[in-house]
Amino acid sequence: MAKRPFNPDRDVAEWHGGSQPYDLLREGFVALIAVAILITSLALLFGSPDEKSVTIRSWARADATDFVTTALGELSGATTSAGYGAPYNHASDGPALGPLHIQRMAGVTIAVDSIQDFVIAPLDSLAAGRSASLTAALLRWHAATSPQRLLWANATVVGALGVSSAPAGDPVPELLSSLSAMATSGALDQSLIAGRGFFSMDYTKPLLFIADGNWFTTLADRQNLLGTQWGMMNETGSYPGQAWLWLYTFWYQIAPFNSSGNADVLVFATMIFLSGLLIFLPFLPGLRSLPRWSKVYRLIWREHYRRTGEASRPRI
């Protein structure tokens, strides 16, 4: 192999200095015990948070108006999930990285139809115990065209006194009040989870529905979990959470990311780029010289330089 010139940021001179006894396994054992004691102390002192999960039932009971407004939003296509795009539906292109709509290109692989999945299908599933007025409302809904359904949804108003609509024969108020009843009873939670038969460990539908509402955000706000509060790295209560995500959440706070509709993909792309820099640092001229220039190594190996400094002085 051709001999490359010595580069202090890539190469080392072979070590001819001495060595000292060092009991690796004993050190490892002592470290493990010390770390175990530290962790146990922290766990005893601070514990861990466990905020109960939200259910559709608890949501509809705590803030009935928000629940009904959200359900109406699903019917009129006004919610986040209804307009999301891939991987759930084709409603939008999603964020873009320059000309690349990576999100859309990856395709709709977890199909979610907010109208059908969150509102109509659960009501359809109410066979026994379904009231005559709900049966009639569902019949009217199924027989109508999409534009007609949208007209109905847009004409519906959620007020302090309940759900109302001016056009005669608008089935939406009946659908929403039945859905509310289903939600407060807990039946809607089950209906959204059990989409694929008896077993399910997939909470995509109920989570998307819950996240469409304001109640969920209100709860998160109380726990300091919002994105504007650096929420992604926080945990409920005052726990350190995923502090190592600070750089990732940092970008969301500053321009141009904080005002961009494409922030999600821009921030992710930035982080992938920076991660690449981290991993390939040993090969990056300039960056890999920073440690030598910074001279922090003198602090780290203070002992060594003090010793060899003394040893090498007579050599000059």
């Binding site: 001495g18 060595s19 000292q20 780290i300």
Partner: peptide, 12 residues
């Protein structure tokens, strides 16, 4: 794999 010593600079 399991050395019984380390170079003297391993002191930090």
């Amino acid at each position: 794999l399991l050395p019984d010593g380390q170079p003297t600079y391993v002191a930090s």
